[in-house]
Structures are given as structure tokens and as C-alpha cells.
Design a binder for these strands. Structure first.
Lengths: 177, 177
DNA sequence: TATTGTTATACTCTATAACTATA
DNA sequence: TATAGTTATAGAGTATAACAATA
């Protein structure tokens, strides 16, 4: 409870309740920025995710890795790094820890002697069945303030931000010197 | 360029271009999650923000702090911490660095001898006029894939996620054991 | 006794360089 | 020579405990 949060733009969720008698802070400029609102929403969801997945001993990054292994058996560390934007040195301990927990099988790649294919063990499969179900349950919970249509619209608009249609005209003055 | 990114769910933006001949990775489960999409969008915007603000020597957190001081002259460290979710010990160096750059004035609080009111210096005001204009320019750029209506809808739906209307019924099964 | 601002410190996350073994 | 996986390490970012001055 009262988990402490990252920086950037955040308004007081768990601020130590003030002694009182202070004027409210004007954060309207920050609140007019898309980045502020996107980050607030992402942090809200990720915080719920952290809490929901802690039962399984999985951080978001662990879940992401295991989910990719689940749906891509034999995937290599290099491919995980590319797909998740993790740097190779930082994946080593993560994989080693999941391996120590008996969730993984590591088999030498049949064609490339340098690579190691990653698979879920029986325990790993069992854990991920539960964890992915929990993720779906959480998904319903965090999107409960939205109608089904609104949820679909939100997904679509978010994708337009990070995967802008290259054929669409760029209406803004965007210059990057 | 080639900035390295945080963890959680990310698909390869700057993945080292593969040797080739590999099957594409199935990330459809991750891509079905609202948190994944919200984080991807937030990171896209924040990355553009980092780049745009680097001319001013401001990280997002510096910009946030200076913006709050701009619109709340005399604000205290404690209030900044509450508004931005920063822990007091972590704000000390941030404020000290902005002060060293001559962007701030620190005046003892007239009523509370423990507190220090924060103000922008003339240089700070000049910098923030430019930086907030740049933030508005960036805002137009990142939201350029969206129509004005879509941008407003996105803002509204994001706020519904992190500021759910308490009077609305919670349709989900949300249990947190 | 509680709060503001601070120091010291630790832990996590992210990043770079360099090694090894294979290709 | 280039790539997959690894080691060691450095730097952010974030966290807690404890202190002095003030309320």
C-alpha cells in the first residue's frame, strides 16, 4: 500500500495529507499535455498490474518475457531483447532467475550453436496459464470505467500515437533541429 | 537517436537489425493489453519530449517542477513533492541544480520558518517562456496523427482511466485478495 | 509531537565496454 | 568479420531511515 511512484508528471495520489490551510496547486498547464495524461494512465494501470502479478512473483517485465516465450516457444534472448527493448546484458539475470525458479527450459538452437532456445517448463506453463488469466481479469478491471466502444477507441487512438500512419499527412510544424 | 528505452512491454523500435531469416514474433497477447498500449504511447511522447527539451537542459521532471513554480510562485518543496509524486530527498538535488543554474529564487516563507518559497528568477522566467512554448509546439506535433476531436476524446478517456468517476458502477469483477 | 528540508544510503533500472564461442 | 550470450561496471531513478530547525 502507498507504493511510491516514479517521477515525471504526477499528481498526489498518496501525498502525505497536508497540514491544511494551503491553496490548491495549479497544475493546469501540465494537465493540458497529452504526455502527462498518457503517463498518468499508464502508471495507474501498471501499478494495478504490479499488485495483481505480485502473487505470481512476476514484475511486468517478467510477465512480458514469459508471455512472449509462451506464444513463441524456442524464442532466443536476442529476439526477446528486440521485441521488448531490453538490452542483452540486462536480460541475463532476468532469464537466469526465471530459470532458477524452474519456469524455463533452455535448449541449444538446432541450427545456430551460439543461440539458446527458450521454452516454458511444465511449472512455467501452469504459472502462465494463471498469470495470463489474471492479466485478462485485470484488463477488465482497469477498463471498467470505459464502455466497450470507448475501450476500443482508446486502444485505436493510443496506437495512432505510437504507430502513426505514415501515409497520413503531418499537419504539425514538427521540426527537429 | 538510438536512445535506449525502459523495460515493460516494448516492441523493437531501435532493435539491432536482425541477420534475417527469422519468423516474426507473436506479441498479440501483450498488444491486447491496455497497459501495453498506454505505456507505448506515453514512451513515444516522452521520448519526443526528452529530445525537444534537451536544448533547454531540462528533463521532464525539471520541466514539471519549473512549470509548477511558474504557475504557483512561492510554492514549497513539500508541495512540489505532493503534486509530482517525488520523494523529498530526491527533490533536494534537483532544486539545488536548478538554483545553481540561476533559474530560481528561494525566499524564506513569511509565515512558516521551516519552509522556503520557490520563485523563478528573470533567467528562469525567460527559459520557461521558451520551454512552455516548445511544449505546446511538441504537443501539436505528437497529436498530429489525431484530429482535434480524436485528441479531445483521447484526453477524456485517459482521464477516465486514472480518475475514474466514483459515482459510476464498477462493472468488473475486481477482487484484490 | 509533527512537519520542512536535508543527509546518507541502498536498491532497482538502464546503459556501455569488452570478453567467449560460434557463424 | 559479425552475431549470441555473457561479465563487469557505471549511472540514473527511486526508496527508507534519521537528523536539525521550526511549528
Amino acid at each position: 500500500m502507498g507504493r511510491r511512484i516514479r517521477t515525471f508528471n504526477r499528481t498526489a495520489a498518496d501525498a502525505p495529507v497536508s497540514a491544511g490551510g494551503e491553496l490548491p496547486i495549479d497544475a493546469s498547464f501540465l494537465e493540458s499535455l497529452l504526455g502527462y495524461n498518457a503517463r498518468r494512465a499508464a502508471l495507474t494501470i501498471i501499478e494495478a498490474f504490479l499488485e495483481r502479478m505480485s502473487v505470481y512473483g512476476l514484475r511486468p517485465v517478467d510477465f512480458s518475457v514469459l508471455s512472449l516465450i509462451t506464444h513463441n516457444p524456442g524464442i532466443t534472448s536476442r529476439q526477446l531483447c528486440a521485441a521488448l527493448g531490453i538490452l542483452p546484458p540486462n536480460l541475463v539475470k532476468l532469464i537466469a532467475d526465471l530459470d532458477k525458479r524452474g519456469l524455463l527450459l533452455r535448449k541449444p538452437h538446432p541450427e545456430d550453436g551460439r543461440a539458446i532456445g527458450l521454452y516454458l517448463s511444465a511449472d512455467g506453463k501452469k504459472l502462465m496459464r494463471e498469470a495470463e488469466a489474471a492479466a485478462c481479469d485485470l484488463e477488465n478491471r482497469v477498463s471498467s470505467p470505459l464502455s466497450a466502444d470507448e475501450r476500443a477507441t482508446l486502444m485505436r487512438l493510443l496506437r495512432k500515437i505510437y504507430q502513426p500512419d505514415p501515409s497520413a499527412p503531418d499537419t504539425a510544424s514538427g521540426s527537429t533541429p
